[in-house]
Write a protein that binds this DNA or RNA. Sequence first.
DNA 1: GATGAATGAGCCTTCATTCAT
DNA 2: GATGAATGAAGGCTCATTCAT
Lengths: 219, 219, 219, 219
Amino acid sequence: MARGDVKTAGLKVRRGRAGNVAMGEERRLRSILDAALSAFARQGFTRTPVAEVAAAAGVASGTVIYHFQTKENLLAVLAWECLHLLWRECSGAASAAAPGPGRLTAYVEAFFDFLRREPDRILLLFKTEPMELSLGQVAPGLDIRTLWQATRMLLVNIFREIGEMDGQELPDPERLATALLAHVSGAAWLHLFFNESLDALRGSALDLAGRLARGSVRP
Amino acid sequence: MARGDVKTAGLKVRRGRAGNVAMGEERRLRSILDAALSAFARQGFTRTPVAEVAAAAGVASGTVIYHFQTKENLLAVLAWECLHLLWRECSGAASAAAPGPGRLTAYVEAFFDFLRREPDRILLLFKTEPMELSLGQVAPGLDIRTLWQATRMLLVNIFREIGEMDGQELPDPERLATALLAHVSGAAWLHLFFNESLDALRGSALDLAGRLARGSVRP
Amino acid sequence: MARGDVKTAGLKVRRGRAGNVAMGEERRLRSILDAALSAFARQGFTRTPVAEVAAAAGVASGTVIYHFQTKENLLAVLAWECLHLLWRECSGAASAAAPGPGRLTAYVEAFFDFLRREPDRILLLFKTEPMELSLGQVAPGLDIRTLWQATRMLLVNIFREIGEMDGQELPDPERLATALLAHVSGAAWLHLFFNESLDALRGSALDLAGRLARGSVRP
Amino acid sequence: MARGDVKTAGLKVRRGRAGNVAMGEERRLRSILDAALSAFARQGFTRTPVAEVAAAAGVASGTVIYHFQTKENLLAVLAWECLHLLWRECSGAASAAAPGPGRLTAYVEAFFDFLRREPDRILLLFKTEPMELSLGQVAPGLDIRTLWQATRMLLVNIFREIGEMDGQELPDPERLATALLAHVSGAAWLHLFFNESLDALRGSALDLAGRLARGSVRP
DNA sequence: GATGAATGAGCCTTCATTCAT
DNA sequence: GATGAATGAAGGCTCATTCAT
């Protein structure tokens, strides 16, 4: 994936032939996506008119539809992008770490870093509209639940790896992963909606991760 | 509060003089609230027309507005009710338990019982519309954030009590409460949106609660 | 017309048998009419909900309809009443004056007195809703145009009388009456909508009346 | 003001870029305004649904709102236009006449010509809704009362000019203007609502104007 | 007689989407 | 490709009127 960091491939976005005009198509698409992200995350999908996104992006509202066909599709692309970025960060960090419990720490750190750096992207995922829409439309097998599962599978695999490493018979990796994911998701929720301190939450998540890895907390 | 379990007092709901007729006013209000709860929780607030709620409740759509003035107000009343019920369950269970760590267990059990019994009520609270609306309108000081804080304060107080009991110098009760709340909220989220097993989640939450009480997990 | 000054006879108003209860039916009807007059004159008919009139009158809105059948009918009764009162004042004053030009003066004075005393009643007549409604419903032959004509006929007859008195061959009494009526109506309009000084307008109307009577202005 | 007779400048009307298409934007706006004028003048503002105006104009009802934002704003634009046209006619005629009493005659003639040619425009101004709405919204300083005053000021200035010309010490020009305006307004009222003959009314107004100019009627 | 909860038709307005330019 | 005027279905809300009490 040399050019165009953001993988939107497979999603229904209308694009012209490579290398083009004025504002630059790539840049135009980006500014629409960014405008939409910020508006959807803040006010919610249904409360944001296409015209508002268009205005914020500096294009005509026809242009938004021209590229994304549908307002819902715009949300789908956006949600997919958010989850993909999140997955990339976490998976990248985890696999860069040394095998073992360090991966868990790296995963959790990456999650909180992402949350701090791009709160809107997580906020968007907590909004329930993405869930309510059948994202199956966007790209088969890429609906939002599937992607969440992918994020979760990262954890499952890490726990499995840890279990296999020190043979200490960790309880069901599935349940361990779920427990940690619950903690981390809830932390993000409290942070985003109730302004709970990110650092405190990160601390408690890391602590839990450590103990889960050591088997000292039975999920 | 002998008769009329649900405390709706203070909220802007139009009611007739006490003790009246036909379908029973109380019953009519209830059926509207129930219809709205189920529809809002399932499809979301904005995607549910007033007419749909009315139809499900078996009344004319004018009737819904007659009683609640506004669709938003209906949501506000509902959100308030959900949060109040949740608070009542948890606080009731906790204070019925013997002082000490038992209260934490009772609290968590009550939360999961409520979640199992009335998933729609928690689901509604996770929908972001209630948050987006300024519920301050409904009744001053009763906005949804304030009510969440009340639920959280229950936990804080329990941790404080435990700390004082066995003098074992528990870390900041605020942070302990936040950690547990994050875990529990995230668990509900995973259950409601990803069908994670309620029992597994409950188990891990109880376990965490126990360890937090014993000071063996540092949040 | 001994008892019940206001002649509402012939209009569709539901009344009970004479001599009755609590607030007193007569008084209740009056308070509804008064509330309606003030609201209709100020905000207009269409912009005034029945419920508002009812509230201002201290009765239930069902009661308003119970007595007047229809919101439109309430307006009709009111408009009829206003015109009737105006006619009574002007005709009373004119016939009390000595035959001749003095009658004109008396008529004009009475009009302006009425306008000063009960501006809402004239205001109501200027609102166009009364005109837009087919007041024929209320009582046959009593629609608002007919009543205006009655007021105008007073003037015609006075001019005719003056013409016959001094045989000075006054121009068409119809036209004289119309000219004076135009002046007087316009004056009321300017006063009510543009706050023109009542005294200045009265002065110019009296002056015109005098000259018309003396034949020195040809309408 | 070469092209585009009607000065709508400054009013909140959404218009496309200059010089455009199909039905012609200008023509479309006109047809909406015309349809609205006729409907509002005949049935009144509140009794005319936007959909009816749209249908009469041959557009979708969304189009009406698209251009005028609000039904009220449509009325405001219309009322402003009517008053502006009236003012233009009268002021044009007056200033085209030779200085002196001839200006008064020209003014009155222009008023009655306008009334005959475009009765709906005067009718609309007599409807009370334009007055009830705060037209201040449309364009600051352009509310309907201010515009009426402008029309009145024309008369004041003419009387002042006459007074200065023949030094015959005319009474307060303000009051003279008010007297004539009352007469003329009342005449329009009687014509529009009671079908009084336009010619008779015009005659009496001209006569009055003449005598006021000559100082032979004291207002 | 009086009430007021309930009704439901009607209306203004929003807004995603289309399409001619 | 991009635009934005036009569309019209949809929806929240108002309010005159009904009717059971």
